[in-house]
Design a protein around this nucleic acid. Structure first.
Lengths: 368, 368
DNA sequence: TTGTAAGCGTTATCAG
DNA sequence: CTGATAACGCTTACAA
């Protein structure tokens, strides 16, 4: 591997000049610059990043710390992060850890010195706390940290608003006995979605009924199991809000087995709008979260701080969600909506003021 | 940030000794070692990885180059890679690129000097070729490179065998007019799955019919569209093999809209066994690929070479696939298989000799 | 506009 | 077993 010295010697200049050419710093004659570049590419020279970062204290890499929970949501977030990183010529170092504080701290330590900034997806409350003091002296951006007191840069999803819109939609359709399948306890997104559910009930004057809140952990199988619990409730709920789409899928599957028709016997709304939501039967009404954009935005927010390696401002930002009305909620019947054209994924209109808007997907005749 | 000098001074030893303690190299008295460690942790010292890799020429990082196509399969592979990396204390640098040779070379260049080894998921043929000469002088492991002539370390999936088993299964159920929804042209996995399909037909004495091979690109929507083409074929096929599960989902959705019953009117088999395959209606018969294990194994294979930074041996290895028989193929009727217990995901028995085995999922009464 | 030279924080090679 | 000291490949004052 050629070094800066080889290039300098071969080009008949000093190593400082070569360095300048590769950093487009200081004034260098176009002629010499061109010459140096030619020699460099002939020698297949590329600056050694270790040597460079040893002196500049910059790595041009961003760390991404994920929970070991995976799935479409996370992979979309990474995709967004990667897209933004590539645009800005930054590398992405991914690392997963269990959500507990201990492993998070260990993961952060392992990343130390290798990154200029860190994006942490910490869906648990204690994980957020664990990262706190680190964030005070290093550029860190938290994804979905909930409403904790710690002062950190953060980006979250309008979970509360999204859930509120979903449940409100069910209420508007005439439902009163509306159950909810919860996410993992301790998970902040899940908690906020539950709060939105409760708020919507309260605002409609529907009493809080703890027995309508069924356990779940965001997995298909937990949705499947929740359906069994659901069917034992008397009087049986007429609608259910699942804290994510995967559980909604499990629910649909179990309900079908039990000959409970969706939406006729039980209306259903999910959360996330994963890619296959529109291919389910019935097509799933859900709250769209643009996970890819979340990742991109996180990178955008973090980069200015990463470049200067100063702690990120403790500013919080919330990404809007969109209620996507399909068939599982009963607002539209499968009969009039099943066309090929209805399978596209409209991006919907984003209203940044009210953080949850609604679009109708696949319903209106001629909408194709 | 404390440096090795600070620790040395504070501990009253030389920097060489501190270095030795942190590399558990050479003999150091337990007493001094202990003392140094204490001082180091008090100063919150951690070796600077840039300085370290500048002299050792090791980064303790592995690069992962992905196609920009994402989805459950890729995220599972990354998860496997990450698990193995964490075990071995290696970092993972992910980077995506379009599959074409040009962007791949650019991505590799950007990674140069930052990694000790590279895992490339290059589902396209020309991408594989692009990586060839780089692999001759650097530890590279290709995932699913197809049967190209280049001598590289590679890990692939038993695509041919899996597809063969799927189609053979349909033939054994009495089907003769079996269509296939293809993957993207140029995609090597897709090509091998098609070859398996053709081979199974040929071995059963069924003539090759080009019109039964429908275009697709691995997306749900392409499966949806393929269904329309499928239904125009006369005489209509009685079974269809989809090159992946996402397309199978699109197919199911379109067929339901057209009132074509699966499996009664049309039997269906997919490929990949994504998590929700067992929650579809009907439950999807498919060929399981353990994407997570693929990632883990890739890391295992690559690491010995990464440690020495010598090019990987041009050894090829194929991971077995398993036919998972559920309802969409018609071998089992939904009536007798729909129990809660059937929703677990049995790992199946792996027969390493014949690279595709079969398991029955959710059928046998009492299997729960 | 270009060159010289002093580090950056380690590890590795020798002596002791 | 421990300590000097020379690299590693680069950036960046400071000089010319």
């Amino acid at each position: 591997m050629a070094t800066i010295r080889d290039v300098a010697r071969e080009a008949g200049v000093s190593i400082a000049t070569v360095s300048r050419v590769f950093n487009q710093t200081a004034l260098v004659t176009d002629a010499t610059a061109q010459h140096v570049r030619t020699v460099a590419s002939r020698l297949d020279y590329w600056p050694n990043s270790a040597a460079r970062s040893l002196i500049t204290h910059r790595t041009h890499a961003i760390g991404v710390l994920l929970p070991d929970l995976y799935g479409e949501f996370f992979s979309e977030v990474i995709r967004g992060i990667d897209m933004a990183a590539r645009r800005e010529k930054y590398q992405v170092l991914v690392s997963s850890s269990r959500a507990n504080a201990e492993t998070i701290v260990a993961a952060v330590r392992a990343l130390r010195g290798r990154i200029d900034g860190l994006i942490v997806m910490a869906p648990d409350a204690d994980a957020t706390a664990a990262i706190g003091d680190f964030a005070a002296r290093f550029p860190v951006l938290l994804l979905n940290p909930g409403a904790t007191a710690i002062e950190v840069g953060a980006l979250s999803i309008a979970n509360h608003e999204g859930a509120y819109a979903a449940v409100r939609h069910l209420i508007d359709l005439g439902h009163r006995r509306i159950a909810m399948v919860m996410g993992p306890s301790g998970n902040l997104d899940a908690g906020e979605r539950n709060a939105g559910y409760r708020q919507a009930r309260a605002d409609a004057g529907i009493a809080h009924l703890p027995e309508l809140e069924l356990a779940g952990d965001f997995s298909e199988s937990s949705g499947f199991q929740a359906a069994e619990a659901l069917m034992r409730i008397r009087p049986r709920p007429t609608a259910v809000f699942a804290a994510n789409d995967y559980m909604a899928i499990g629910l649909i599957s179990a309900l079908r087995d039990a000959d409970v028709r969706v939406p006729q016997d039980l209306a259903l709304v999910g959360f996330d709008d994963i890619a296959i939501a529109q291919y389910l039967s019935p097509m799933l009404t859900t709250v769209r979260v643009d996970a890819c954009e979340l990742g991109e935005r996180a990178m955008q927010r973090l980069l200015p701080f990463a470049r200067t390696r100063r702690p990120a401002e403790p500013h919080r930002e919330t990404l809007p969600t969109t209620l996507i009305v399909r068939h599982s909620c009963g607002a539209q019947t499968p009969a009039n909506g099943a066309t090929v054209g209805s399978r596209h994924r409209p991006r919907g209109t984003r209203h940044l003021d009210d953080r949850t808007s609604a679009v109708r997907d696949g319903g209106a005749p001629g909408e194709v």
